[in-house]
Each structure stands twice: as C-alpha cells, then as structure tokens.
Design a protein around this nucleic acid. Structure first.
Lengths: 131, 131
DNA sequence: TATTGACTTGGAGTTAACTCCAAGGAGTAT
DNA sequence: ATACTCCTTGGAGTTAACTCCAAGTCAATA
C-alpha cells in the first residue's frame, strides 16, 4: 500500500506519516527497490494505533518510547504494560474533563433554547455554579 | 479575590489568567484603585467557565467570540446558543475518540497483563484489528 | 528518450496557547 | 522612610506537533 493510499484511508497527510516514521512513532516502513514506502498490513496496524492514540492526546514521545520498547523484544513486556497504564490514566482524566464540559454545555444550551423562544434571558446565563 | 488566590483555587498561573483577560477569553476584571486585579464572583464564574471549556479543547478563539457576543447584550442570544452548539459537536467528537482510545488501551492492557504473568506474548500485541 | 507525476530527504517554518521577562508601581512590615 | 513582596504592562520566547519546501530520484507513459 502506498503512502497516498494510507493517507486516504485515514485522512491524514503524507507529511504526518513520514514524520511519524522519522521520529519513531511507528517502526520503519517497508520499501520498494526504488526506496518508495510500501506499507504492509503490520505497518498499517501501527499507523492505525498511532492515529488512535494521538487522537486522544497520548504524546508522541510516549508512542516513541512504546515502539522502542517493542523493538527490544519480550523482555520489555512489563515496561510496555506499565507505559500503557500510564497512558490510560491520562486518557481517563481527559475523558472525565470532556464529560464534565459536555454536561456544562448541555445545561447552558438548554437554558439558551428557552431564552431563544422568548428573546430574553430571564436568568443569568453565565452564573452557573457547581454544587 | 486576588489573582494569586484565583490561581491557587484553579491551579493555573497568573500569566494564563492575564492572558485570558488580555485576549478576551474572559471579560475585563475588576481593579482596585491601585490597578490591581480584584476578581468578583462574576469574574470567577467566567474564569471557571473558561478553564472548563479549555480543558475540553474548545479553542480560545471561540471563547473570545462568545464573550464578545455576550457583551453585546440580548440581541446575540441566538448567536451565542449556536456557538455553544457548535462547541458541543466538537466536544462530543473528541469524547468519542477518547472513549475509543480507552477501549483500545483496556484491551491491550488486559492482554499484556496475561503476558506479564507468563513472561511471553503468545499473541501479537500490535495486531489489533477493528471489525 | 523526454516528460510527467509521485515519491524521496533534511531542514526550515507554522500554529495555538501559553509562558517568561524586564522595568516599574503600590501596599505593608520594620 | 526603607525594604520587601506582589502586582502591573507590552512584548518576546517556548513548546508540541505538525506542515511546508527545495532539490533530487524513479517508474511509467507519449
């Protein structure tokens, strides 16, 4: 699979894919004789994983460390597991924040929708105090 | 309330608070005769709101626009409501991504925990294909 | 064989959101 | 009144994660 196809599949740019490979977010990708990237199934799995993790704010640095450990073989299984748990703690924290923000947005919007009907805010839109 | 107290309350830096005020993420804050910021209850509500929204990745620019609309009065109620809905769409998208990443992390960690016990990976840790 | 178009590299540039800094002012303890 | 601490400002600097660029290579087509 060419870099272009992978990019279309995941809606990212070639620059981002090359960047991921260059810094080690994914392992080195297969090449043709001419030196052109030819992504294998495995390569694509790594790409998919990187995109998923990055979409939840897992830092590039942590992904690099994970790949580095992976390439050292089975002796790093525990270290990799710990790294994943570390990532999970952060992702969960963020998830909670997003949920909290959704709650606030939903509350404000429901209040605003009432106000849109009447054209007047009878309550203080910003005066939302958490109990 | 002084800037320091607000910072301690929300665990942010004075620089960030001043930055928020400067660019308009929050309205201008009350001052003492000497020109020192003295945050009112309302000011603090705005700070709280800004921090909450920012923690879920709502862009500074959107918050600026919201405050700007707010200051124009009741004629902007519908516009503000639409802005909030726009924000909600994005926050929900991110929330879904975070949940998806959590699922992936949980799956990988559970597999790794099995492997940690035996010291060997009997399955391909990276070969996680979504159906 | 000449051109086309996609690919390659290393390195420089961009962006959002802070974060730091220097110079100076105000309020309080001694 | 002197020292000390915290505050003020405008503007410059930093950071992570891309994103762009120039120069060059390669395979396929006219």
């Amino acid at each position: 699979m060419t870099i272009k196809e992978v990019c279309e599949k995941y809606d990212i740019t070639p620059d981002t894919l090359r960047y991921y490979e260059r810094v080690g977010v994914i392992p080195e990708v297969n090449r043709t004789k001419g030196g052109i990237r030819d992504y294998s199934e495995q390569d694509i799995k790594w790409v998919e994983n990187a995109i998923c993790m990055r979409s939840a704010g897992v830092p590039v640095e942590m992904l690099i460390e994970y790949v580095s450990l992976f390439q050292k073989g089975n002796s790093t299984i525990e270290a990799r597991c710990n790294l994943l748990k570390e990532a999970r703690v952060e992702v969960q924290k963020q998830l909670d924040k997003y949920q909290n923000t959704m709650d606030r947005l939903n509350y404000k919007i429901s209040r605003y929708e009432e106000a849109v009907k009447t054209g007047v805010l009878t309550w203080d839109a910003e005066n939302i105090k958490k109990d």
